[in-house]
Amino acid sequence: MSDSRERILARLRANRPIEVPTPTVYAKPLGWDREHCIASFMQRMQAVRGEVHRIARDAWVDWLAGELPARGIHHLLAGNGDVGDRLASALPASIRLSRYDHPIEQWKPALFNDIDAAITHARAGLAESGSIVLWPDANEPRLMSLAPPIHIALLDSHKLHENFAAMIAAEHWANGMPTNALLISGPSKTADIEQTLAYGIHGPKQLITLLLD
């Protein structure tokens, strides 16, 4: 252990400020029912230019098969799980489907330059802030929701929580965090020039959430 560590900690231990009460666990129950949560999620997401489509549970494959060619998407990236499996047989021939099945070091330039869109699951959604929640893993790695210009997320509408505080309490997040957890609220944006909002800086330019009933 370094001397600096010992010195810093010794200084901090030498002085204990006046005690303060341990803060209560923050909770902000809103009492929203499912429809209210869905409406708020959609409205918040759309307010920051996130696209949301509420469709039937099994309709997303057909929706993508119809919509992707219409949007000029030629190269779609899926993970190693069921999403890619289902798309493999359903997408029209004009769309190339790649799977994120080897380490990033082997194909970084292609991921950054050749993929038009990537599709992942969202683990949950937050109604109050209009956020999707991702726990990227070996099947759906971290860069999928980040490097391609379009990110498509599949979100089960039954997995909406009122807000962040409610979700981490209900799902006991403190018991075990993944390598990386994300709240994503819309496509990437910046206001660094004259405080003027501009979309599509370094992350995806479009975020499309398919809200599955």
């Binding site: 990033i104 070996a138 965090m177 993944p178 390598t179 990386n180 994300l182 709240l183 992350g203």
Partner: peptide, 16 residues
């Protein structure tokens, strides 16, 4: 837009 929570480096089997 992003709230990014990092708890680990890449784990065995993870691809990025």
């Amino acid at each position: 837009t992003y709230f990014n929570m990092i708890s680990r480096p890449r784990q065995p089997g993870e691809l990025d």
